[in-house]
Write a protein that binds this DNA or RNA. Structure first.
Length: 521
RNA sequence: GGCCUAUUCGUCUAUCGGCUAGGACGACAGAUUUUCAUUCUGUAAAGAGCAGUUCGACUCUGCUAUAGGCUACCA
């Protein structure tokens, strides 16, 4: 069977898109692109009670931000939801009529039956009988179309009694799922229960039915989803059989889970709050419960860093390459190199990836990205030097907003001086040294102030002048230069001193020195 | 409880029967630096346990342990 690769990402709009979901989407996308296939996006909103307004938009916008392109179904276009493709609608709540038809098919062929047991009755049953399961052993004692006379069934439906349609699972049959990552997984149908396929209460199918019908109708060739679906995969296979769709049944691949960094268990929203990092791509304002969750985008991450980081959580090629562009991932990705065990989420490594991608950006690009942060701190910004300033400090930061902490003194003269730095670097002789240095610097011609292009700071006029003065006076280089630095920066930090004077210029440098002498002398 | 899946440094992983077990993050140390960083170099750090198959097992098999998932009229 050699057909066109079509994969799908099918999230539920029950909240923000979890980072684990993002990885599932990513692997689907990589697989589709690599095989020249289609990436579909379908919304699985068959649980009307869990619907969260805004979640759909969020999911689509997040994928768009990350560069995970959608070929068919719902996608983000110009700030709103758009639909493309001719297998729609792509929202399951809009496909009721389609599901009716297939539920009927199963009912007619004897693969499904009506059940009238209420949730309360089922709960009671579970209380009463440990490990109660609605299956071949118990269905004959329940209230359903297998135990009720046909006219009674019709009467109940006619008068509007709520019911569900259950899948009739034949007992004691070994069902084997061929998983592309794990190999053959076999389970016996005895442990499967007669799953609810359709509920009259909201006139919607459950996941299992909708999923199979849609994947079939949308001609999905590969189902790549989280490991939490592995136990129900045999049920899905039984459904394909019941429908007579085994010839076109998709292949399955169940991805390992993303785990908590500490302790055990699936990574959850709470872990992010608890450990102080985002578990969502974008910040999310939950309109249902009013909560706000932080996002990677708002935390200063580049989408390509998030992609790279996530790609390597559960997949790795042979070799030592760590940095992958999306194109390289598309080229190299393969399901058989996806690991089988869950991966703990290591936020520190995520930061490192962002650091790497930040270094790759040009100073000009970074200065564009930095502008909003800069403008948040300053009323007016002289843009001329921003790119140069960023060039001096970018290797110290992981995120764009952190540039401010590293470079603020370029924009604002120090108003106070760091005590620790003073204790260590501002000595008794410092006022005298700086006084002399000031006099010396005043003699420097404006045109000699800045280090000429093509020369290092050490080769500049300032350095030559100051170093020979220090040597002549037999002062310590460290003690003078550190005191000078404190005057300009307000603390013992920052790039090379002549790089700072280059940016500040003569007037500002001298002004800062005079101010410091006033305050510190 | 039942079923399923997994198990290499603290973490992500390489190895597809021949290993002095490699890389990265993180940690630590040293070098560089007039500051703080960066950078560079180095160090510590792993095959869950027990059997079996084999000339040889991290790699194959079994059992045990541990972890995770599923077991809803959620997805």
């Amino acid at each position: 069977m050699n057909r066109k690769v079509r994969v799908r990402f099918a999230p539920s709009p029950t909240g923000a898109l979890h980072i684990g979901g993002v990885r599932t989407a990513l692997y689907n996308y990589l697989f589709a692109r690599q095989h020249g296939g289609d990436m579909l996006l379908r919304i699985e909103d068959t649980d009307s009670t869990r619907f969260v307004p805004g979640a759909e938009e969020y999911i689509l916008e997040a994928l768009d931000w990350l560069g995970i392109g959608i070929d068919e179904g719902l996608r983000w276009e110009n700030g709103k939801i758009a639909q493309v493709g001719n297998h729609g609608p792509y929202r399951q709540s809009e496909r009721r009529d389609i599901y009716h038809q297939y539920v009927k098919q199963l009912l007619d062929s004897g693969h499904a039956y009506y059940a009238f047991d209420t949730p309360a009755e089922l709960d009671a049953k579970r209380q009463e009988i440990p490990n109660f399961q609605y299956d071949a052993r118990t269905r004959t004692q329940m209230v359903n179309s297998l135990t009720l006379p046909a006219d009674e069934v019709q009467a109940r439906i006619a008068r509007g009694d709520q019911y569900v349609v259950r899948f009739l699972v034949e007992p004691n049959e070994d069902v084997t799922v061929h998983d592309l990552i794990r190999g053959d997984v076999t389970i016996n149908s005895n442990i499967l229960d007669d799953k609810v396929l359709y509920k009259s209460a909201d006139d919607l199918p459950t996941y299992h039915l909708a999923n199979i019908v849609d994947d079939h109708l949308m001609e999905v060739s590969h189902v790549i989803r989280g490991e939490e679906w592995l136990p129900s995969a045999p049920l899905h296979i039984l459904l394909y059989r019941a429908f007579g769709w085994v010839d076109t049944m998709p292949e399955f691949a169940h991805l390992p889970l993303l785990l908590k960094p500490d302790g055990n268990g699936k990574l959850s929203k709470r872990d992010g709050d608890r450990l102080g990092f985002p578990v969502f791509p974008l910040e999310f304002h939950n309109q249902k419960d009013g909560s706000v969750s932080s996002g990677y985008r708002e935390s200063g991450y580049f989408p390509e860093a998030v992609i790279n980081f996530l790609a390597l959580l559960g997949w790795h090629n042979t070799g030592d390459q760590e940095l992958f562009s999306m194109d390289e991932l598309i080229q190299q990705f393969s399901l058989d190199r996806v690991s089988k065990a869950g991966a703990k989420f290591d936020y520190e490594k995520g930061k490192w990836f962002n650091h790497q991608y930040l270094q790759l950006k040009s100073n000009e690009e970074l200065s564009q990205l930095f502008m909003p942060t800069l403008q948040a701190h300053l009323t007016s910004v002289a843009k001329d030097n921003v790119a140069d300033i960023i060039g001096l400090v970018k290797d110290r930061v992981n995120f764009v907003p952190e540039l401010w902490e590293q470079a603020n003194f370029f924009f604002v003269a120090p108003t106070e001086y760091d005590e620790k730095s003073l204790a260590k670097r501002w000595k008794e002789d410092s006022p005298r040294h700086i006084q002399e240095l000031l006099a010396l610097l005043e003699t420097v011609d404006e045109k000699d102030w800045v280090t000429p292009a093509g020369k290092t700071a050490e080769e500049g006029v300032l350095n030559q002048l100051v170093m020979s003065w220090i040597a002549e006076k037999e002062y310590g280089v460290g003690i003078v230069m550190n005191a000078f630095r404190i005057c300009l920066v307000g603390a013992a930090r920052g790039p090379h001193i002549w790089n700072i004077t280059d940016i500040l210029g003569k007037d500002e440098t001298l002004r800062r020195v005079r101010t410091a002498l006033q305050k510190l002398a």
